Computed example of a mutant assay.
Amino acid sequence: MEIISREDLKAGDHIYSWRKAKIYSHHGIYIGNEKVIHYTGGVVKKTGTRTLLDNFTSHSVMNQKTCPKCGDQLKIDGVISSCLDCFLAGRKMYLFQYNVSPSVFIGQRRPGTCTTAPSDPCDEVIYRAKFLLLHNGFGAYHALENNCEDFAKYCKTSLLVGKNDVHGRGGQATSLSVVGFVSHVFMPKVSKAVHLAADIGVREDAEKVSVEDLVARSKEA
Results as ranks from 00 to 15, higher is better:
residue 48 G to N: 05
residue 53 L to Y: 07
residue 54 D to R: 09
residue 55 N to K: 09
residue 58 S to E: 14
residue 58 S to K: 08
residue 60 S to Q: 11
residue 61 V to D: 14
residue 62 M to S: 12
residue 64 Q to S: 13
residue 69 K to I: 11
residue 69 K to M: 01
residue 70 C to P: 05
residue 70 C to A: 07
residue 70 C to N: 07
residue 71 G to R: 11
residue 73 Q to L: 14
residue 75 K to S: 14
residue 81 S to N: 09
residue 82 S to G: 01
residue 84 L to V: 07
residue 86 C to V: 06
residue 89 A to V: 09
residue 90 G to C: 12
residue 91 R to T: 10
residue 91 R to N: 15
residue 94 Y to I: 03
residue 95 L to G: 04
residue 96 F to V: 00
residue 96 F to M: 02
residue 97 Q to T: 14
residue 100 V to F: 05
residue 100 V to K: 11
residue 102 P to V: 02
residue 102 P to K: 10
residue 103 S to R: 08
residue 103 S to C: 03
residue 105 F to V: 08
residue 107 G to W: 00
residue 108 Q to R: 15
residue 110 R to T: 02
residue 113 T to D: 03
residue 113 T to R: 10
residue 115 T to L: 03
residue 116 T to F: 03
residue 118 P to T: 08
residue 118 P to V: 13
residue 124 E to C: 02
residue 124 E to K: 15
residue 126 I to M: 06
residue 127 Y to M: 08
residue 127 Y to A: 03
residue 128 R to N: 15
residue 129 A to K: 07
residue 129 A to Y: 04
residue 132 L to F: 04
residue 132 L to D: 01
residue 134 L to V: 03
residue 134 L to T: 11
residue 136 N to G: 15
residue 136 N to M: 08
residue 137 G to A: 13
residue 138 F to E: 04
residue 138 F to W: 08
residue 139 G to H: 12
residue 143 A to Q: 08
residue 144 L to Y: 03
residue 145 E to H: 14
residue 148 C to D: 03
residue 152 A to Q: 08
residue 154 Y to I: 07
residue 154 Y to A: 06
residue 157 T to H: 11
residue 157 T to A: 12
residue 158 S to M: 00
residue 158 S to H: 11
residue 160 L to S: 10
residue 161 V to S: 13
residue 163 K to Y: 00
residue 164 N to W: 07
residue 166 V to P: 07
residue 166 V to H: 05
residue 166 V to N: 07
residue 166 V to F: 12
residue 168 G to D: 04
residue 170 G to I: 12
residue 171 G to D: 01
residue 171 G to P: 05
residue 174 T to G: 14
residue 176 L to R: 13
residue 178 V to N: 04
residue 179 V to L: 14
residue 180 G to Q: 01
residue 181 F to L: 11
residue 182 V to G: 00
residue 183 S to C: 03
residue 188 P to N: 03
residue 188 P to Q: 04
